[in-house]
Design a protein around this nucleic acid. Structure first.
Lengths: 152, 152
DNA sequence: CTGTATAGTTAAGTGAGCTTAAATATTTAG
DNA sequence: CTAAATATTTAAGCTCACTTAACTATACAG
């Protein structure tokens, strides 16, 4: 089942272990905050892409503008985001997190930090340095991959 | 926003980049196979935990047995899993993937390998060795963390 | 200027995912 | 053996997330 390349195999093993744990925490946090995973995911997107529009979110989620619009309406109803008119195109909206929405994002990040801290506590300083260097390599490459993908 | 600990900060940056990409691929694959993310996730759980029961799945997803049961019914209807009587407890069911269900899991893994291979192509042999060593450290620790969590 | 394209919204419809409650069969504890 | 606990299922009800279609206001192209 795993790839023949030891590197890809190692990554896959890591992905499996990591995704399982991450997803479990994400789902738990979403439910505790009374939101669905989709809604929290949308908040994160709006947080990351300041002043994005309805279609931007729809594209990112791979759904129609209508679906995005209706999801956003529910987030507006819950006071988590605001929709305003875009400055250079009166047809378009700009999405921004409210203070409440920002708090949800912060708390989700904080919840994630909890188990990352647990993980960090198990590594020696030498191990940490090693992992930081390796993650630096991976990050540089994945960012390059995303630049390529984003130009599609 | 990021933790003061450089290690945790590096992990977080990696988490953000990685989760975004992984989730995008996972969502795309789920939709292409006509299943929801929850359904694919359940298939993966059944795949990993051979002969698990309805309540096991519900516990893993953090939902009631009724919710799990109804989701499983939909997977049965689509020919992706089978439910049989557990050998040592006539109240319980054992879940197993059909060939069709196994194929969905395989294809999802294969889709993930695609971008991991893209990533691998960008690293030198030395970089790969470094990353493999670091991931080995992380894996050992995260497995230990899960053993601790599983004993709760 | 006119026709076409675009951004977003609303309505209607459908299916998934969840809850609680009730029920049945089976297992366990005393 | 009896009562309590347990695993699962089904029903009913609700919300979310999605689709397509239709619409309005705005931007763009010729």
């Amino acid at each position: 089942m795993h790839s023949a390349d030891p590197f890809v195999a190692a990554l896959e093993t890591w992905v499996e272990a990591f995704m399982r744990r991450s997803m479990r925490h994400f789902m738990r946090y979403s439910r505790e905050s009374g939101l669905s995973m989709s809604q929290v995911g949308a908040l994160f997107h709006i947080h990351r892409e300041e002043n994005c529009g309805v279609s931007d979110l729809g594209d990112n989620l791979g759904v129609s503008s209508a679906a995005a619009s209706q999801m956003l309406e529910r987030l507006v109803q819950q006071g988590l985001i605001l929709r305003s008119e875009a400055p250079n195109d009166r047809r378009a909206k700009q999405l921004v997190l409210t203070e409440k929405g920002r708090q949800v994002v912060q708390e989700s990040i904080h919840a994630r930090q909890g188990w990352l801290n647990d993980l960090a506590a198990m590594l020696s300083a030498e191990e940490k340095a090693q992992v930081i260097a390796a993650l630096g390599i991976l990050l540089e490459k994945i960012n390059r991959l995303e630049e390529t993908a984003d130009s599609k």
